[in-house]
Write a protein that binds this DNA or RNA. Structure first.
Lengths: 243, 243
DNA sequence: TATATTAGATGACGTTACGTCACCTGCAAT
DNA sequence: ATTGCAGGTGACGTAACGTCATCTAATATA
């Protein structure tokens, strides 16, 4: 029967010698053989037990509980609960990522974030709100899912939308009207982007802008002000009169 | 200017009073105002700072480093690195989940796991091996991705495959030939399953069984023994002679 | 008015899962 | 003869708080 020394076990499982000695000390994993000089030798069974321990530890179970549970749980039970734990972590991570992306994108829109925005986003992460996509029909969802730039989406398209909205906000601040050269440029950029996104489906596109008028809590979008929406509509209308 | 007491802040951010006092103690977050009785009052700026701290803490940065970094990093920098961190966690989690699923499925096939199987799987999780899907053509991948039951897939189809393989192993152990009633039943169940999976594409199906003959390290599959594969082929051949 | 409750404060010690350090041993190689 | 290495044993240190005993000021209730 092959046996392993502390050093060998450490390398295999990437843990420290101290850890093994500690587990021996607290009677969690005692090597099945100790020679006259006190050197520890681990059997294959010991390694299985160690594996169980590490799995249970990854559930952030305290070592004391692990010691009590170890013999009562089968390998499979441990693996299954480990699996469930990982799944839960996964969904938490995903919502965390989406919230972080939202915040980052928001920072591009506002120079300084208001405290309330941040709090709302972080608090909402507990019980996720109605998602904007729910405002559309079932059969449209699959298409929208990838195509529409929600604020939780940090791809290139989203960024371009954000840049355009910034540009519009700049225009409003500097009293530049939608019916101007700048307005024309914005309108054509917007139309090109929209065309890319909606592939010519004008009805979907209009629905999209309608939804963006709703307050942020309901849609998950960063709310676009009435002023910006008006600028969009007027600049596009102006562009169409010239065409 | 609104101010918040310790208790209020604790509830908002779901941390303990002790934590706030500790942060004060180590000079990480000192409330901007203390009254004559030593009661702490936090301003909006303080709350922003706390938010930064909690974000950096979630990167598992030690508090001491956080204190040094806090003024040097903008909110956005923090958010972006937080985002990167989360992404990394996500991919780790995903491979962890897939490995765990593999192990669980393996346990259905073997009553006792051999130590070497476990070690290989856990070690491979560091640098992911060639994936089985790479054995197919690019344009076939998208179809295969969802349809084929790899061992890292715990859906219903996978489970049915595993049950069938267990049944075949049972037959082999009890010396029941492929050319028997039991063999016939297995063959028809297999064919039905394969039809579901491959939607009649027999060429893909044959490739699939070919790949399963390769050793596990290369494919990521649980290796099917020659005996089982032979049983499969013979039982199907037998079924076809009777049809 | 007396008192009970609440929301805060301050030491001081405890906790987990090890890291780190000083020092000791048996054995192989130089 | 000594050097290096892989292992050992206390003993103390660490991070980020939890917990406990005790104290204080303000408010609510009898």
């Amino acid at each position: 029967m092959k046996q392993w020394t502390t050093g060998e076990v450490c390398k295999q499982r990437d843990i420290s010698i101290r850890t093994l000695r500690y587990y021996d000390q607290i009677n969690l994993l005692t090597p099945s053989f100790k020679d006259a000089n006190g050197r520890r030798y681990y059997s294959e069974d010991d390694l299985f037990k160690l594996e169980k321990i590490l799995l249970l530890k990854s559930l952030s179970l305290p070592l004391e509980n692990i010691r009590d549970l170890l013999d009562k749980l089968s390998y499979k039970q441990i693996l299954v609960s480990h699996h469930n734990y990982l799944q839960e972590q996964l969904s938490k991570l995903q919502s965390s990522i989406s919230n972080t992306t939202s915040l980052i994108n928001m920072m591009d829109l506002e120079d300084s974030l208001s405290w309330e925005h941040v709090v709302k986003l972080v608090q909402n992460s507990q019980n996720p709100p109605k998602k904007w996509i729910d405002y559309f029909q079932e059969d449209e969802k699959s298409f929208l899912q990838g195509a529409i730039p929600s604020i939780s989406n940090n791809d290139k398209t989203t960024h371009q939308y954000i840049l355009l909205i910034q540009r519009i906000e700049w225009c409003i601040k500097h009293n530049i009207k939608a019916e101007s050269d700048e307005g024309l440029q914005i309108a054509s950029a917007l139309m090109e982007l929209s065309n890319d996104t909606f592939q010519g489906d004008t009805e979907l596109m209009e629905q999209f802008w309608e939804v963006r008028k709703l307050p942020a809590e309901e849609t998950g979008f960063y709310p676009i002000s009435e002023e910006v929406l008006e600028f969009v509509e007027r600049s596009i209308a102006y562009a169409e009169t010239l065409a």
